[in-house]
């Protein structure tokens, strides 16, 4: 027991030689300051980092997690939303670029979306950490700039080309993250060669099974037959099978095929009214072993990923076509009788 008491004496000796604490923020150890900063919201951190250099470097060393962050930039005004909104106007584009990049520097995003209309403020210098990235009617420069700054780990890329935006697909497809992302899409795509270019890129990089790319087109874009024509012409020598709704092609890897599926079963003719209808395409890397009987006929399951505003996973295809988006049990869709019109389509 004597040794126990000696131990206690030694321990307390060490404790008691510590100085009496001051009670000022500046006297707090760095690790405590960092703990406090971790508990602060974005605005608090911004204010604290403006107090002094030392505080700035501390604040900047801390990441802040966001489940979602939206950057809506227009004419030097940043609307950064993540549950609540931060609306900030700037005197010049440099300030706007600085704040955007600061948020990107400290932010770790589950999802992030960009809606940039002013190219002057578009200059990403910081790496972007996000699992899902959305672009809403952005210029090519914004899309390419942000994709190039993405850190590894992106799982979803969603590009909306609403408004007639066109992208330099060669530039985009050369980006490593795009080549390896499991899912991406272009909504309201105006580029009929997109399917062919993505499929070719996948062949070139030997993409994994399950890798998916989807497009939707509108009446403003090229006719559906254009998407299909370009794809077919390019892959004439690769075709494994071709049915009304699907084209299957082989890749350079004997284990993998690429399947192009058309969503919704419209009968296209030269009637201009029909041209205004939606059309969706899905490109997916599949196993070469996959049988046709294993194809998933419930196109609504994948359409709702690209147009979740208008379509639900539970919508029946015929209801979608009729504009009647009632939710019906999955089993009903699965077991429904085959519509004679679902058969091979002369378009393909």
């Amino acid at each position: 027991m004597a040794s126990t008491l000696e131990n206690l004496t030694k321990m307390t000796e060490n404790l008691s030689t510590d100085p009496v604490y001051d009670t000022n923020w500046c006297d707090m150890p760095e690790e405590i300051k960092l703990e406090c900063i971790k508990k602060m919201g974005f605005q608090q951190r911004l204010s604290l980092r403006c107090t002094a250099k030392a505080e700035r470097s501390l604040v900047d060393s801390q990441k802040i997690k966001y489940s979602w962050g939206g950057f809506h930039m227009s004419y030097c005004q940043l609307n950064f939303s993540r549950g609540s909104h931060i609306l900030k106007s700037f005197k010049n584009p440099i300030e706007a670029v600085e704040l955007t990049n600061y948020i990107l520097k400290i932010g770790v995003f589950e999802g992030i979306s960009f809606y940039y209309r002013d190219e002057e403020v578009m200059n990403f210098t910081e790496q972007i950490s996000a699992k899902c990235i959305d672009f809403e009617s952005c210029e090519n420069k914004t899309v390419v700039g942000a994709l190039r700054k993405l850190k590894k780990g992106v799982e979803i890329i969603r590009i909306s080309a609403k408004g007639g935006y066109e992208y330099d697909l060669d530039e985009i497809l050369a980006i490593d993250h795009v080549q390896h992302v499991p899912y991406w899409h272009i909504e309201d795509c105006h580029q009929a060669d997109s399917l062919q270019k993505v499929a070719q890129m996948w062949i070139d990089v030997n993409s994994k099974i399950g890798t998916t790319f989807q497009v939707s087109r509108t009446y403003q874009g090229p006719r559906p037959s254009e998407f299909q024509r370009i794809f077919l012409e390019h892959f004439t020598d690769h075709i494994v099978s071709k049915t009304g709704k699907r084209i299957r092609i082989r890749t350079n890897n004997p284990d993998r095929h690429i399947l192009l599926e058309r969503g919704l079963d419209y009968n296209f003719d030269d009637d201009d009214d029909d041209e205004s209808d939606y059309q969706f395409y899905r490109l997916i890397v599949i196993s070469a072993e996959m049988k046709e009987s294993e194809y998933d006929n419930k196109c609504n399951k994948w359409i709702c990923k690209i147009d979740y505003e208008n379509f639900s996973e539970n919508d029946d295809e015929q209801n979608i076509i009729n504009g009647n988006h009632e939710n019906i049990p999955d089993g009903h869709v699965e077991n429904r009788e085959r519509n004679p019109d679902d058969g091979d389509d002369d378009d393909w």
Partner: peptide
């Protein structure tokens, strides 16, 4: 420091300027 400006934070926490 919630809702406080940098100047107010400096004052509350007695942070010296650069």
């Amino acid at each position: 420091v919630k809702g406080k400006s940098p100047e107010e934070i400096r004052e509350i926490w007695m942070i010296p300027t650069d």
